[in-house]
């Protein structure tokens, strides 16, 4: 079975094609285009305009780079939520139009669950992980328990990527700021104390963000502030992930989301996993960031397990929570 998935929850529009053969997941193509704001953060309408301008070309390109034809596609899936309304609506509209044109079924999927399933689908030995999902807007620790993907811990205020971006923006760095902060942090060495805020398995970043900005205002070395910020936030993330692993008694950890590209975060989570005797997994970068292939794969899993969606019921849901998804494709 072949599924084409369209992702459009935030600043990226992506089209991916997945082929399933005897339960294994094969990525045939995965094309992504990213909106770059001229200044500041994502402007939802501007991002949606970007997506609308790019989506038709992306769909054609994603099919062209494979050996298949539009007539070989069995299913169209799209990111139904959570995300920015205008972006979601643009991706959903494209998906509906494509499904009607090629006369194939349509299915909407949860973006956060897709991040986890693409790990299970494409990373060898990854079967039942705790996912640390770290992106701009989302910071969640997700695992399968009692028939659903449940959120064991999450941010109580802003996402980790958002925290890094807000800090970076105050310094005049370009969006996304994470990679620049990572470079600066690598040169820092002196640790400046920052609030370490964990509540149960939930975390909060806003106090730490203010404290970091205050260090900069006071003229502290920028590299040291970046270093301290990364060390503190990532230690918090690693700690809540470990707590979730202990709580759920799971032996695998999976990273996902754009911030999973950060080498220091990878190193910390990997160290934690090794010391617990657990396995550590990260999908390839293009499957970690927002992408169409993961949407295609989850759509395919859902369809094969009997889920169906009519066009009438394909409305997007900006607040589509991870634990709202009925999991029909695994026990």
């Amino acid at each position: 079975m072949i599924c084409l998935g369209i992702e459009g929850t935030a600043h990226s529009i992506g089209v991916g094609i997945i082929q399933e053969r005897k339960g294994t997941c094969q990525v045939l193509s995965n094309k992504i285009k990213t909106y770059q704001p001229e200044k500041g953060g994502i402007h939802p309408r501007e991002a949606a305009n970007h997506h609308a301008a790019k989506i038709a070309g992306l769909i054609h390109e994603s099919v062209r780079v494979t050996t298949i034809d539009f007539s070989d596609i069995d299913l169209i899936s799209f990111s139904q939520g959570p995300g920015l309304g205008p972006c979601l609506r643009t991706a959903a509209t494209a998906a509906r139009a494509l499904a009607l044109t090629i006369e194939k079924p349509l299915i909407g999927v949860n973006h956060c669950v897709a991040h986890l399933e693409i790990g299970r689908g494409t990373v060898r030995e990854c079967t039942d992980p705790v996912l640390l999902y770290v992106s701009g807007a989302n910071t969640q620790v997700i695992a399968f328990a009692e028939k659903k993907y449940r959120v064991f811990g999450e941010t109580l205020d802003i996402g980790i990527g958002n925290c890094l971006d807000k800090f970076g923006r105050a310094l005049g760095l370009e969006f996304p700021c994470g990679p620049k902060i990572e470079q600066l942090a690598a040169k820092g060495s002196q640790y400046l104390p920052l609030p370490y805020s964990i509540k149960g398995m939930d975390i909060a970043f806003s106090g730490l963000l203010t404290a970091s900005e205050n260090y900069v205002k006071k003229g502290k070395n920028l590299e040291d502030v970046c270093f301290s910020m990364q060390e503190t936030t990532f230690a918090m993330l690693t700690e809540v992930t470990e707590r979730a692993m202990a709580h759920t008694e799971k032996q695998e950890v999976l990273l996902g989301g754009g911030v999973a590209s950060n080498k220091r975060l990878r190193e910390m989570v990997q160290t934690m996993a090794l010391n617990r005797g657990a396995k550590f997994f990260v999908p390839t970068r293009d499957l970690c960031i927002d992408n169409g292939a993961m949407i295609a794969w989850l759509g395919l899993l859902m369809y094969q397990s009997g889920c169906r969606m009519s066009i009438d019921n394909s409305l997007i849901n900006q607040r589509f929570r991870t634990d709202m998804v009925e999991v029909t494709w695994r026990d």
Binding site: Y191, Y196, E231, A235, E239, M268, V269, T271
Partner: peptide
């Protein structure tokens, strides 16, 4: 002690 976090954070925590 947690090897994943730096000594300064580890000791203090």
């Amino acid at each position: 002690q947690k090897a994943y976090r730096i000594k300064e954070i580890d000791r203090q925590l």
